[in-house]
């Protein structure tokens, strides 16, 4: 639907606590950046805790099309690059039970 009775939109990013990342929460219509911040504050910081807001013109955002989503798909098993892909504790325990290891100190434990 084409309409030029509306101002442009601004994407709103909200920061809950100093040091946290800014998180996208929605968008507002506004004639300029300053108004966008004011409206964003009214819309998104009424009661949720907020220490800072960013607004970005929606037209500045470039997105990947969803029909390209398969490029994010791992074609192969990628467990080799995840910490959970390695069961090291289990391997050490198993090796100790089979006496394949000879701990140098008695107090060597978990």
């Amino acid at each position: 639907m084409d309409s030029d009775t509306q101002w442009v939109t601004w994407e709103v990013l909200h920061q809950e606590k100093r040091g946290d990342p800014h998180v996208h929460v929605g968008s507002v219509h506004a004639p300029n950046a300053e108004m966008a911040l004011i409206l964003a504050k009214e819309q998104f910081a009424r009661r949720q805790k907020c220490v800072n807001l960013w607004v970005v013109p929606t037209v500045a955002i470039v997105s990947m099309p969803y029909d390209d989503a398969d490029i994010f798909e791992a074609g192969t098993d990628k467990s080799y690059r995840e910490a959970w892909g390695y069961k090291v504790r289990e391997r050490v325990r198993a090796a100790r039970e089979l006496d394949r290891l000879d701990p140098k100190e008695d107090d060597a434990g978990e």
Binding site: P21, Y80, R81, A83, Y86, V88, A95, L101
Partner: peptide, 30 residues
């Protein structure tokens, strides 16, 4: 702030490095 936030992600990835290294050492030790 920016350093602290970058380190969150870095630490997550490092945990795989450590496991992978430990795994190599266990293979050699056994």
């Amino acid at each position: 702030g920016p350093y602290s936030r970058a380190l969150k992600r870095i630490c997550y990835e490092e945990s795989f490095h450590l496991k992978h290294g430990h795994d190599i050492c266990v293979t050699l030790a056994t």
